[in-house]
Computed example of a mutant assay.
Amino acid sequence: MSQTCIHERTSHEEIENGQKLQPKFDSNGLIPCITTEVHTNEVIMFAWMNEEALNHTIETGKATYYSRSRGKLWVKGESSGQIQWVKELRTDCDQDVILIKADIGENGAACHTGYKSCFYRKLDGDKLVFDGGERVFDPAEVYKK
């Protein structure tokens, strides 16, 4: 395993203006991660990362998250084949959010429901309406549930 590029947090000045990745994990050891599609900048999902998931993402180039419900790492696409190839990893000014720009392929999907984005519905008046295009895959077939 390669050496991590994640560093302990230091000064306010270094966190905001320095060249070291110093992520701020919360009291549960997690940091929020927003993932967008690299070609369109469409937000395709939100998930959590712990330090191990962040390291794995950096080392492999595959978006890896921490599943709070399962209590373990989750390499996006390991079950569905819908891998998110990391093209760019960013952090915000105070390094308490990660942004991944991922390539999901021309016919890729980020959501376990089969849609390209997890944000496939929008509020219209008092109802959620579908606004995410057609499903890319059938989750019942992919996950055999």
Score class of each variant (00 low, 15 high):
84 Q>N: 04
43 V>D: 02
29 G>Y: 15
45 M>K: 05
92 D>T: 10
80 S>A: 05
82 Q>P: 07
105 G>K: 02
37 E>C: 09
72 K>L: 07
54 L>N: 12
103 D>W: 13
39 H>Q: 08
105 G>C: 06
33 C>T: 14
34 I>E: 01
98 I>K: 03
105 G>W: 05
46 F>L: 11
87 K>R: 15
56 H>S: 14
49 M>S: 08
78 E>N: 15
37 E>W: 10
29 G>N: 12
38 V>S: 05
70 R>V: 06
71 G>I: 03
84 Q>D: 05
51 E>Y: 08
46 F>V: 13
88 E>C: 03
53 A>D: 03
85 W>D: 09
81 G>K: 01
76 K>F: 14
37 E>N: 12
43 V>F: 02
91 T>H: 15
33 C>R: 01
78 E>Y: 15
43 V>Q: 10
29 G>E: 09
74 W>P: 05
66 Y>V: 07
57 T>Q: 08
53 A>R: 02
87 K>H: 13
77 G>L: 02
63 A>T: 10
93 C>R: 04
100 I>G: 00
31 I>N: 02
112 H>M: 08
32 P>C: 01
27 S>L: 00
48 W>R: 08
47 A>R: 01
44 I>P: 05
74 W>A: 03
60 T>H: 00
100 I>A: 03
87 K>M: 13
91 T>F: 14
32 P>I: 01
108 G>R: 07
45 M>E: 05
44 I>Q: 03
105 G>M: 03
77 G>R: 02
71 G>C: 03
94 D>K: 00
77 G>Q: 03
106 E>P: 12
73 L>N: 05
65 Y>L: 11
66 Y>C: 06
30 L>G: 11
110 A>H: 06
79 S>T: 11
79 S>G: 00
79 S>M: 01
104 I>N: 00
46 F>M: 10
71 G>Q: 08
77 G>S: 08
52 E>W: 00
70 R>I: 06
30 L>I: 14
75 V>D: 02
35 T>F: 13
46 F>T: 05
60 T>I: 00
49 M>P: 11
34 I>H: 04
47 A>V: 04
47 A>G: 14
81 G>S: 02
85 W>Q: 07
34 I>L: 14
64 T>I: 13
77 G>M: 04
40 T>P: 11
83 I>Q: 01
58 I>A: 03
106 E>R: 13
41 N>V: 06
28 N>E: 15
53 A>M: 03
90 R>M: 10
98 I>V: 15
111 C>R: 05
70 R>N: 05
57 T>K: 09
56 H>E: 15
72 K>P: 04
61 G>V: 08
80 S>I: 01
39 H>D: 11
103 D>P: 12
65 Y>D: 04
65 Y>P: 06
33 C>I: 14
27 S>V: 09
108 G>L: 10
55 N>D: 15
35 T>A: 15
47 A>F: 10
37 E>R: 13
32 P>S: 01
37 E>P: 08
50 N>V: 07
83 I>H: 11
54 L>R: 12
80 S>G: 07
67 S>Q: 01
101 K>Q: 13
95 Q>A: 09
59 E>Y: 12
75 V>C: 11
76 K>L: 09
46 F>D: 00
74 W>Y: 11
66 Y>A: 05
103 D>M: 11
34 I>W: 01
49 M>Y: 12
108 G>Y: 12
59 E>P: 06
92 D>E: 12
87 K>W: 09
52 E>H: 00
